[in-house]
Simulated assay, not measured.
Amino acid sequence: MRSDTFTLPTPEMFTAMTRADLGDDVYSEDPTVRRLEELAAERLGKSDACLMPSGTMANLTAMMAHVPRGGKAIVGDESDIYLYEAGGASVCGGIIYEPVRTQPDGTLDLADLAGGWPPDLDDPQFALPGLICLENTHNRMGGRVLDPGYLDAVRRFADDRGVPLHMDGARIFHAEVASGVPAAEIAAFADSLQFCLSKALSAPIGSILAGDAEVVARARRLRKMLGGGMRQAGVVAAAGIVAMTSMIDRLAEDHALAADLAQRLADIDGIDIDAGSVVTNIVLFRVSAGDLDENAVVDLARESGLAVGEFGHGRIRAVTHRGLRPADVRDAADILAGIVKEAR
C-alpha cells in the first residue's frame, strides 16, 4: 500500500505489448505511439500529446517549454513538482521555484499566488513569473480533487497576468471518476497537463504530456535533449492504450477500497484520520497511541506484512490500487489495530 506505482500490467497489456506495430518514435514513425498520443489528446481535449518515460520528465519538459531561463514557476510548497522531482527545473532549465503555501484541500490561494509577482515588473532585480503549476488530484493533501470553480478562478488569474497554467494531473482520471467531471473539462483550464499511465492505470511505464501543438513540439525537443527519446516505444505505448481504454472506470473500485480502509481506521482508538476527506485512492492518517512516531509504525507494519509509507508532518500514507482486494484492506486495518493496541 505504499503507492499505486506497484500495480502490475494486466494480461491484456502483456498481449498488446507483444503484438504492437513498431517504428522509430524519435522519427515520429512508431504507429502505436502515435495512436496512444492521439487517443490521449482527444481524451483531454488538447490538440497534441507526447509520450514521456515518466511524469517527472513530463512536468520538467512542460516547465522548460513554458518558462525562459531565469524565470519563475509558482508551485505549491506541498506539490510533487517542488518536493519529489529533484529540483530538475532549476538544474536543467534555469527556472526558479516560487513555493507558496498549499491549503488543506490542495488549492493555492489567489492572494498567495499574487505574492509571487514582484511589486515592479520593470525592476531588473526581480525574476519574473512565467508559469503557475497546480496538482490535481493532490497527492500530499490526500488525493484531493480541485473544484472546477477554483480552477476557473486560477485560469482567469493567469490570463490577467499573461502567464500559462500547467497541471500536474498524474492521477487526473481519479479526479474525473471521483467528481464526475470529464477529464477534458478539467484539462480545459490548463495550457498543458501531464498524467501517468504507470500508477493506478497499471501500465508498466510512461506518462503523457498534452497541450497545444506548439508547447508539445517544444516539449518533444526537450524530451530528446534530456535523453527521453525512445525508439520502438510502441512496446510501451501498447500497454498505455489498454490503460486508457479499459482501466479508467475501474478506478471507482480503488476509491471504494480507500473509503473502506479510512472508515476502519477511524474506528480504531489511537488512529487519527478524517475519513470524510478520503475521496480518491489515498489515505492519510496518524497514530496517536503511545509514543510511536510514524517511522516506527511503518517499520512495525512492515514486520507484519503491511507496506505503508511515512508521508511527512507525522502522517502515514496508504494507497489503494488494482493489486488489492477487500480482504487486504481488512488485514491492513487489523495489523494497524494490533500495533496501536501494543503501543498502549
Rank of each mutant, 00 (worst) to 15 (best):
T5S: 15
F6R: 12
T7E: 14
P9C: 10
T10E: 06
T10R: 10
E12N: 11
F14A: 09
R19Y: 03
G23A: 05
D25E: 11
D25Q: 11
D30P: 01
V33P: 01
R34K: 10
E38T: 04
L39A: 02
A41L: 07
G45A: 05
K46D: 03
K46A: 06
K46L: 08
S47H: 05
D48H: 03
M52C: 10
A62H: 01
V67C: 00
P68I: 00
R69L: 01
R69M: 00
K72F: 02
A73D: 00
A73G: 05
I74A: 02
V75S: 00
V75R: 01
D77F: 02
E78T: 08
E78K: 07
E78A: 12
I81Y: 02
Y82A: 04
L83S: 00
G88L: 03
I96W: 01
E98A: 13
P99K: 09
Q103F: 13
D109N: 12
L110I: 14
L110E: 15
D112I: 07
L113V: 11
L113Y: 03
A114E: 15
D120Y: 12
L121P: 07
D123N: 11
D123G: 07
A127C: 15
L131F: 00
N139L: 13
R140M: 15
G142I: 05
V145M: 10
D147R: 14
V154S: 12
R156D: 12
G162M: 02
P164Y: 01
P164W: 00
H166F: 05
H166Q: 06
A170T: 14
I172T: 12
F173Y: 11
E176W: 11
F189A: 13
L193A: 03
Q194K: 14
L197C: 13
A203F: 06
A203Q: 08
G206K: 06
L209S: 05
A210E: 07
A210D: 13
D212Y: 08
E214N: 11
A217D: 07
R218Q: 03
R218P: 00
G228A: 09
G229L: 06
V235F: 12
A239I: 09
I241T: 05
V242E: 08
A243R: 04
M244F: 12
S246M: 04
D249R: 15
A252Y: 09
D254G: 10
H255C: 14
A258K: 10
A259T: 15
L261Y: 11
A262H: 06
A266T: 08
A266H: 13
I268W: 06
T280K: 03
S288T: 12
N295D: 13
S304H: 15
S304G: 15
V308Q: 01
V308A: 09
V308D: 06
G309D: 09
G314S: 08
R315S: 04
A318S: 13
V319N: 09
G323Y: 07
D328Y: 04
V329T: 09
A333V: 06
A333Q: 03
L336G: 02
L336H: 03
V340N: 02
E342M: 12
